[in-house]
Design a protein around this nucleic acid. Sequence first.
DNA 1: AAGATTTGACCATT
DNA 2: AATGGTCAAATCTT
Length: 228
Amino acid sequence: MEGPLDDGYSWRKYGQKDILGAKFPRGYYRCTYRHTHGCLATKQVQRSSEDDFLFDVTYRGVHTCNHCLQRTPTPSPKEENLIQNQASKPQAHPHQQQLLEQLKTGLRVKTEGFNFDEQLLESSPSFSFPSTPPNCIKPHNNLFSSASMPENQLMGNNSTTTSAESNYFSLSPCGVNNFAGGLNLQGFDTEIAEIISAAASTTNSPMLGMDFPMEQIEFETDFPFGFC
DNA sequence: AAGATTTGACCATT
DNA sequence: AATGGTCAAATCTT
Ligand SMILES: [Zn+2]
């Protein structure tokens, strides 16, 4: 029924747990192609305690399944409005939805330096697996960045989804995480390749018009073998 | 029959 | 002992 919007990948649920403090259980998913293609990407979905239509989604690992043709994430299209969310912390960056997409698609993102977009764009589907080769693609540094993008989706039957995409993007240098928002990644230490968490709001209250659905993505990278 | 979900047991950490 | 994450058998869906 409702879950966070589709992120374009296909996942297989392998567990669910009640988490202390949370009113809803957390679902554990791993890439459908784990065995067939050895893809180790996983994600966790947790419905937010307070905002009922918010979901925190945490991605871990990158997809190495070049096969999965990822469908376009969620709804389609285009849209136009964006809403800045209240939230906020980060600086908003206007253009870059693509980024998001990429993010979502999991193909990494990170840019090295600090800043910006341009580079981000490069990360494209072309290369795929980071697994082995550390560096290159992914940034050698582990910085993690977070972005948020709002998205709307109506549920019920008709789904019109309008969505906006404004995103915020923030990067921080090695190690520190500062996303205030909502989640925390607990320790990042060992070997997590990459974690991305996103909170997506899904359906909203049908009637009320506003929700600002927002989706937030955060992710953390660990040094593949790297440094930092 | 094959693939996906559900769900409690089981394991690792703290 | 309490938590969070994963496994796997039973079950449901294609
Ligand atoms: Zn995958």
